[in-house]
Simulated assay, not measured.
Amino acid sequence: MNVRENVDGVVIGMFLGFRGGAPLVVFPSNPHDHAIPARSLCALTADDAGSEIALLFEDGARDRPLIIGRIVEPVRQNTAPQVIHDGKTVRINAQERIELRVGKAAIVMEKDGHITIRGTHLVSHASGSNHIRGGSVNLN
């Protein structure tokens, strides 16, 4: 097996835990057949054992690994609206706005509380009282 003496660039390895307070790592082209102690630029805990890590090597020496960070999954924002249906109620939660559209009709709800109802004809029916409340009510 032909292995270079010095390592250039980042190598992906694995953090296995601690021995004597030093993090133990394994990586491809490890000069030993066991985990070796490393220095670290980031805080690691026992819970991180088994995590992939990015390594550089002091002076390019394979026996002097330096952990520069733990590989993490990028945080993905859930942009899809959340729909909850319990048999009695359907609840739709969204971050910015919800729009219901059919043909020329639309109901738009904004996160700031602004609600717009548009259509060619709007009809309100009530078998009881029909209340319109607001800080001010403008008709035409």
Rank of each mutant, 00 (worst) to 15 (best):
R97E: 11
G87T: 13
E99A: 13
I71Q: 03
T79N: 15
E99L: 13
N78Y: 04
H85W: 15
N78V: 11
T89Y: 03
A105Y: 04
K88C: 08
K88L: 08
N78I: 15
I84E: 14
Q82I: 06
K88I: 08
A94S: 12
R70N: 15
E96S: 05
Q95E: 09
Q77N: 12
R70M: 15
H85L: 10
V102I: 10
Q77C: 01
R76Y: 09
N78Q: 09
T89G: 04
V90C: 06
E99C: 02
V83P: 00
T79L: 15
Q82K: 15
E99H: 07
H85C: 12
R70Q: 02
G103Y: 02
Q77Y: 10
A94T: 04
A105S: 06
Q95P: 01
K104G: 13
Q95D: 09
V102W: 08
I98H: 07
I71T: 14
L100R: 05
R70C: 05
T79H: 05
A105C: 05
D86Y: 12
A106K: 01
R101V: 15
E96T: 15
K88A: 15
K88T: 06
Q82S: 07
L100V: 11
V83A: 06
R70D: 01
Q77W: 09
A106C: 08
D86M: 03
E99D: 13
G87V: 05
K104C: 10
I84S: 09
G87K: 13
P81M: 00
R97D: 05
A80V: 07
R91N: 02
P81L: 04
H85N: 14
P81R: 03
V90E: 07
P81K: 04
V90N: 04
Q77L: 11
R91C: 02
E96F: 07
V75F: 05
D86P: 00
D86G: 09
L100Q: 01
E96L: 14
A105L: 07
P81Y: 11
L100F: 06
L100W: 05
I84F: 11
I84T: 15
V72H: 12
V72R: 14
G87H: 10
A106G: 02
I84L: 11
T79V: 09
R97C: 01
H85I: 14
K104H: 11
I92Y: 02
I98W: 07
R91M: 02
A94D: 00
R97L: 01
I98A: 00
V75C: 07
D86N: 10
